[in-house]
């Protein structure tokens, strides 16, 4: 069992290897080593959600995991969801509904919401679900499920409108 073993994983489909100081967070690796600066550093303590990325299909705080721990993972950042000339449906909805003001929390909001829609599709309950077995979609459900992403501009109502557009378009 070696000390500080390399970690091999993919980021937006590209193979990557991390071999540096084990202290490096996944967030710092994405931004500083790969130059993927869409993922933002807000609080760096798992409280704001600006650093949200999708690892093996799950949204997580990239500030609270180490790059060296990602061995075997598939990581998707905002750059992997869409780019200016081919936006994802959720990215288009955020623009249409003005789901941001300064934009700093937006990549985290969109990564979070993208994975959240998959959680809804799986039928996972939330704290506000009246029935743990059958989830009835409501704005309260969306707000609770997005509570890990803070927006200091207070664009919450438009963020919910953007997400609702996608949930209403999905049968």
């Amino acid at each position: 069992m070696s000390c500080n073993p390399p970690a091999k994983f993919t980021v937006n489909g590209m193979a990557r290897t991390y071999t540096g100081d084990p202290r490096r967070s996944l967030l710092d690796f994405l931004r500083d080593d790969l130059g993927l600066c869409g993922t933002k550093k807000g609080c760096d303590h798992g409280q704001c959600g600006a650093c949200t990325v999708i690892v093996d299909g799950r949204r997580i705080n990239s500030c609270l995991t180490l790059a060296i721990m990602q061995h075997g993972s598939e990581i998707t950042t905002i750059e992997g969801l869409g780019e200016p000339d081919h936006l994802s449906a959720l990215q288009r909805a955020f623009i249409k509904h003005d789901g941001f003001q300064c934009g700093y929390c937006t990549p985290g909001q969109i990564c979070s919401a993208t994975a959240m829609l998959e959680e809804l599709a799986q039928g996972w309950p939330s704290h506000v679900s009246a029935d743990l077995q059958h989830i009835k979609l409501s704005d309260d459900e969306l707000r609770e499920r997005m509570s890990g992403n803070l927006c200091r501009c207070g664009a919450y109502s438009n963020i919910i409108a953007a997400i609702r557009e996608i949930t209403e378009a999905t049968p």
């Binding site: 949204r59 609270l64 995991t65 890990g148």
Partner: peptide
């Protein structure tokens, strides 16, 4: 469990 933390934290 659902009353604790955020979805991102519960996923880890």
């Amino acid at each position: 469990i659902l009353a604790g933390a955020s979805p991102q934290l519960r996923n880890r």
